[in-house]
Design a protein around this nucleic acid. Structure first.
Lengths: 228, 228
DNA sequence: CGTGGCCTTGATAAAGTTCAAGAGCCGTGG
DNA sequence: CCACGGCTCTTGAACTTTATCAAGGCCACG
């Protein structure tokens, strides 16, 4: 597939003119990454942004002691690093390929030129940033208002609503990474999964999790109930 | 001061044409709020956004039990509620005036019309959203990676760097609200301030705080050190 | 001079982290 | 084909941090 065709399949770039696609195609660079390869580091110069074509990328912060908090997991069609393009000089977090990943790199200056000529691209970008901001609001809410069992419940219910058939979930990330996404550590996650199992809320086996009692999870998610 | 003049002083609207200002002025509505008055509630229909002219507004989330997490405190010249205009139908949080506040309300549809004709307004909006996203990244990092003394240190150092003369700070919010901003409760904040005092890091008296040992605060902020 | 709001302090309990040890799993190489 | 080493995940025990509950102090305002 050539760059131009790829561009038209990306939600961020929907609704542009053929001319715009050509302009974009001429500035875009295809970049492949291996599993665990760093794409950019916290503090790097933000001279452009990326769109994932295939594979997955995690965007995360690192504490001084090396504990990581995952901020986003970016899948095909989604952009990342775009904040740096408009806000400032450097990336505010680390980005690393979680598996073999192909991405497009859109250099800053060239992109801004295209943007200036194209209101509908600007509108797309605005909508996208707004959606991301909204997700962050939810993340902050989760981190500050809920305990870990509640956050885990929110995550499981979210998974079951979106990607998969209702009651049988397959985690597509490791437990350690799930822990990081929930703002905790693997030990705590492990214990909570065990408690959820013994309370009959779920049945987990490796990366497979069955939801046995959806109401119970919803109560945990909303803080109405706690685990024994 | 008439609406048009106010508009030109707002960073978000810098660099527009005279015609744009007139368009905007014709759709803007001035709205006054009393102290503690609700401006919008979580879930309300987002049919426009606001810019604070004078006073202050807090944007916050509420847990089921009523515990509040402040997300932003918005001052003169800053916009709020703008995410709803691009992202979706409803506001993702509550907004309330912290004191007597005057704000401008910009209705959604009319604004989008102006935006479509004006790339530089769109660029301003993009930059603003990006900056806010960046702040959120930092907030998430704080909430998930640091303990309360660290978060408080970050906040104090931030205050001393930006607004005020180096070592003598005056809090412009109540302790309860500071607690909420830091993702904790007033009791915990009180204890930590007491410990910081007795360790000679700060000298606090009411709403005034003197920084006595900047290095010590920086160590707490980065997790190198803990309070006794 | 009382009354209500906010802040402080103490005792207690809950939640999560840390440290340490062991179990299960998988690919590599003998 | 089996054993080894290196992962990740699990489990236990001690410890740390923070929240909760309760009581008392301070101050401003009526």
């Amino acid at each position: 597939m050539d760059a131009m065709k790829q561009l038209t399949t990306i939600p961020l770039f929907q609704g542009l003119t053929a001319e715009n696609y050509q302009q974009l195609a001429s500035i875009v660079v295809v970049k492949p990454y291996k599993k665990n390869q760093t794409i950019f580091a916290d503090g790097d110069d933000g001279n452009g942004f990326y769109v994932v074509v295939s594979g997955r990328v995690k965007v995360f912060k690192l504490s001084r002691e090396g504990k990581e908090q995952i901020l986003h997991i970016i899948g095909p069609g989604e952009p990342f690093g775009e904040v740096a393009v408009f806000a400032g000089e450097h990336f505010p977090a680390h980005a690393q390929a979680m598996e073999e990943t192909k991405s497009l790199f859109i250099p800053r200056n060239a992109f801004i030129d295209v943007l200036k000529q194209n209101p509908s691209l600007a509108m797309n970008m605005l909508a996208m940033l707004s959606r991301r901001l909204r997700k962050f609001t939810a993340l902050v809410e989760d981190l500050s208002l809920k305990e870990v069992p509640g956050r885990l419940s929110v995550y499981l219910l979210y998974l079951s609503e979106t990607k998969q058939h209702a009651h049988n979930l397959t985690l597509d990330i490791s437990r350690s990474q799930l822990a990081s996404l929930l703002g905790t550590i693997p030990e705590t996650l492990s214990r909570i999964l065990a408690r959820m199992n013994s309370e009959g809320l779920i049945a987990s086996d490796g990366r497979t999790i069955q939801i046995l009692n959806r109401d119970g999870l919803e109560q945990l998610a909303s803080g109405e109930r706690r685990l024994a």
